[in-house]
């Protein structure tokens, strides 16, 4: 029974990774950049909920809504101010800027909220589910996390394949120049991608902090990096890839914590990334790209 509960907790953690990885993979697919600050947008989302629910005493639903709005605006502003001017710059310059934005968010949060760990009250009101005569207990957070992730996945896939804006995203990720010639607003599409990615990050932040209720300015950075690993694992640019990669990574992390060593869990997760990149550089579901001179 303990194996099943580790597995379910792993799937729950993996669902959070998958939500964060979606943001990475969409942005990478379209803007061809690694948005290092994505993990810190999660942290901002979690702090927004913390302030509205714990400090102001508003209902959790209002907090989540506000967090989504704040993160969406933040994502678009970051894109507009820091990334858009660098669209033609070298990848190194863009990556360094993204690292800078990540540090900026962390330190602004540090100045506002301090370094103390805040204990986050869970916003999930679902009771725990007892199975197999009480031997197996699945917490409400776990159920909500997994369900939310599945719903968002289906909605996002439908959005991309059924709507005009979604088709525009696919076109821009395929070929920016050709998309522009077809009358697609490339800058608008990229901004929309950042908006959706950041809104997902807000949801992920709330779910992450409901399951692991300690909040510091650095809460987002490690899950952010691991979610990027998940995105690479599944094949960067691929939405089902991010989902599968996130789930697998969450399960691997939780099982190695339980059965191998809790100190080595992070090392094992990163080891997985290295092995995947060496054996299959495009990830599990990624498309093979050939290099043109």
């Amino acid at each position: 029974m303990s194996f099943v509960s580790y597995l379910i907790n792993g799937i729950s953690l993996g669902s959070v990774y998958a939500l964060i990885a979606l943001g990475y993979t969409m942005v990478y697919g379209i803007a061809k950049m690694l948005n290092f600050a994505h993990g810190d947008v999660i942290m901002i989302g979690a702090y927004t909920v913390f302030v509205t629910v714990t400090n102001l005493g508003l209902p959790p639903a209002a907090g989540i809504l506000l967090a989504i709005v704040v993160c969406t605006v933040l994502g678009v502003v970051i894109e507009r101010v820091a990334y858009k001017p660098l669209r033609m710059a070298s990848p190194l310059a863009v990556l360094i800027t993204a690292i800078g934005v990540s540090y900026l968010l962390q330190n602004v949060a540090l100045l506002i909220f301090g370094a103390n760990t805040k204990s986050f009250t869970s916003v999930v009101g679902v009771p725990a589910l007892k199975l197999a005569g009480g031997q197996l207990s699945i917490s409400g957070e776990t159920i909500v996390t997994i369900l939310t992730c599945i719903v968002i996945m289906i909605a996002l896939t439908a959005f991309i394949h059924k709507t005009k804006a979604g088709q525009a995203m696919l076109a821009v990720s395929e070929d920016k120049g050709a998309a522009q010639l077809m009358g697609i607003n490339v800058n608008g599409t990229i901004a929309l991608t950042f908006a959706i990615g950041s809104a997902l990050a807000a949801v992920a932040g709330v779910l992450l902090c409901s399951a692991y209720p300690s909040l510091t300015p650095y809460t987002g950075s490690m899950p952010g990096i691991k979610a990027f690993v998940a995105a690479v694992f599944g094949g960067i640019g691929s939405i089902p890839g991010a989902f599968i990669g996130g789930l697998l990574l969450g399960v691997i992390e939780n099982l190695s914590k339980a059965y191998i060593s809790s100190e080595m869990a992070d090392a094992i997760v990163f080891g997985v990334l290295i092995v995947v990149l060496l054996v299959r550089p495009t990830g599990l579901l990624g498309k093979k790209m050939s290099e043109k001179v």
């Binding site: 820091a82 001017p85 660098l86 033609m88 710059a89 070298s90 310059a93 863009v94 360094i96 800027t97 690292i99 800078g100 934005v101 990540s102 540090y103 900026l104 962390q106 330190n107 602004v108 540090l110 100045l111």
Partner: peptide, 20 residues
């Protein structure tokens, strides 16, 4: 307490000044 904040701004501004 502002040290890391300044570092972050240095990174962003240097890149923007050189590439935008």
């Amino acid at each position: 307490s502002y040290r890391m904040l300044i570092y972050a701004i240095v990174l962003i501004v240097m890149m923007l000044v050189n590439w935008s």
